[in-house]
Amino acid sequence: MQPFATPAEDPALREACRLESMGGPVAFSAAGQAELERLFTRYPTREAVVVPALWIAQREFGWISAEVITLVSGLCGVAPSHVYGVVSFYTMFHRRPRGRIHLQLCTNLSCQLRGAEHVLNCLREKLGIELGGTTADGLFSLDEVECLAACELAPVLQVTETRRAENDSLVGPLDGEAARILIDELRVQAEASPAPVASVGPVADSAHRCPGVPGDMPTNMSSGGVRGVTSGGPGRASSGGAH
């Protein structure tokens, strides 16, 4: 009948679960909080806002730590373990910090058929990192991703600036040379513009806007010497049919 003491945290458990700490509690910015409040009005349950809240969190904090899960758990009224389950289930939530520019290369069939393996090797060589790795300067992370539904651009790479709102863009078709040039261009662009430190609000405010690669880079990579185009770049739809 004695009350039971809480045991010390098990390091083995933590290791296998790969849930990292940010070192202290976190909180959403005023803008993020406001966005969240609006989201709560769009769903009949608070739990339904877990995934949107994680998106806001990833934009604001860059990745999902144990503290972020605790935060979302409290706001959405869901046990932390379940928020953790959700985070681990979806591939787009990062459980450790990613580089400023997140490169996700599709290695599914349509891209593989058109040389994704070669592009991957070129990217690994150019960046000096393996899949899942981050460059020493913290600028690039490289991951593979399942079919991006852009097979007409195969091999296709998704480029995302992690701390900015919704700027994902597709680059393709790539070959080894184009991949190397793209990295150089992205590096030049990134060095020219300071890394975002604070979050920015939802960006999709203009119907005409064509969200590009990080910062204000031209969305049509062909101008930069890359053979491919980004999906939906100005003046040019994706290559292929349906014209």
């Binding site: 039971f4 045991p7 945290e9 849930l19 144990a66 869901v78 046990a79 379940h82 953790y84 389950g85």
Partner: peptide
């Protein structure tokens, strides 16, 4: 109390608790 959850997916799925919140209910 919701201490437990299955994390990851496919054959990597595992039962776990959230760090700092062990399965300690009565």
């Amino acid at each position: 109390t919701g201490e437990l959850s299955i994390v990851n997916r496919g054959n990597r799925s595992e039962i776990t608790s959230f760090p700092g919140l062990p399965l300690a209910n009565d």
